[in-house]
């Protein structure tokens, strides 16, 4: 234990690519076998009252909560501010929100972003994980979607994000 961490920073940074590629391999395998899809789960429930995929997404939230809780007891330094909403007497503060944007601004972004994420995901047949898995299954439309996602990430970081901060500053969010 160094500074309360299981692995010191110098080693941890070296493990980032290895750990995440292993995580990805496991999730990719699961995703292919189960057809896992977050947006598909909610869609199937709203359309057909089918819960097969929805159970997966609910299990993800519960499992994340349970294991963050367990690890926050075992390695408190690595799970700081667990139960985020109970920190500092502020019910609404966002994890990893841009420091230039207020909490109200983050909520506005959540609502606008969420509606379009749900809408686009439904019209084009799946959440981003499903698109990755369908790409691996040979679906060329999903491949184009994934390439679009990568382009969208660069466009967002370089152009959209600074623009949002400007606009929010101007309207006081």
């Amino acid at each position: 234990m160094i500074d309360g961490f299981l692995i010191p920073k110098e080693t941890a940074v070296l493990l980032v690519p290895i750990a995440t590629i292993i995580l990805g391999l496991v999730i990719g395998w699961f995703g292919q076998r189960s057809g896992f899809c977050s947006i598909g789960g909610i869609r199937d429930y709203l359309l057909f009252r089918q819960t097969r995929l929805l159970k997966g997404y609910v299990a993800l939230i519960i499992s994340a909560f349970a294991f963050y809780l367990i690890f926050s007891l075992l390695v408190p330094a690595a799970i700081p501010s667990f139960l985020w909403c109970l920190q500092d007497g502020q019910l609404l503060t966002a994890i990893g929100g841009a420091p230039a944007v207020s909490v109200a601004g983050v909520i506005v972004l959540m609502i606008i972003g969420g509606i379009f994420v749900g809408l686009i995901g439904t019209l084009l047949g799946g959440c981003p994980l499903r698109q990755l898995v369908m790409t691996s299954e040979g679906n060329l439309k999903s491949l184009v979607f994934v390439v679009g996602m990568l382009a969208g990430a660069v466009i967002f970081t370089a152009l959209v994000s600074p623009w949002i901060i400007e606009v929010f500053k101007a309207i006081g969010l």
Partner: peptide, 27 residues
């Protein structure tokens, strides 16, 4: 669709998966 999806997801700072993790974290 892919371009717009990513732009709106990054507006949220999350795809549906990190969103689930954040809810599990108590955000």
């Amino acid at each position: 669709g892919g371009i717009l999806f990513m732009i709106f997801a990054l507006c949220m700072g999350a795809c549906p998966y990190r969103l689930a993790l954040r809810i599990g974290y108590g955000d």
